[in-house]
């Protein structure tokens, strides 16, 4: 459920068509978006899950699945 919510945020923010697939292996970098979009998407994810992701943690994420795993860890621990 964490990943699905993140995928929705990304799809909505970037106004992506339904036929563009977003998977846990999708990375924000791979979507050819710039650093401004990355910051905005992260802010929206933080708002949606009511958490704050530390800047140093952000550098470790390789893909959307990593973000979902981190949020699961924070919310369920």
């Amino acid at each position: 459920m964490y990943f699905e919510k993140i995928a929705d945020i990304v799809r909505h923010h970037l106004a992506l068509d339904e036929n563009i697939e977003i998977t846990p292996a999708s990375s924000l970098k791979g979507m050819k978006i710039d650093s401004l979009d990355v910051v905005e998407i992260i802010m929206k994810i933080e708002d949606a899950f009511e958490i704050e992701i530390p800047d140093e943690k952000l550098k470790e994420f390789q893909n959307l699945g990593d973000i979902a795993d981190y949020i699961k860890l924070v919310k369920e621990s």
């Binding site: 650093s35 401004l36 910051v39 905005e40 802010m43 708002d47 704050e52």
Partner: peptide, 10 residues
Amino acid sequence: ARRVSPMCVP
């Protein structure tokens, strides 16, 4: 401050 959009300036 952490909720000011990076799109604010542009």
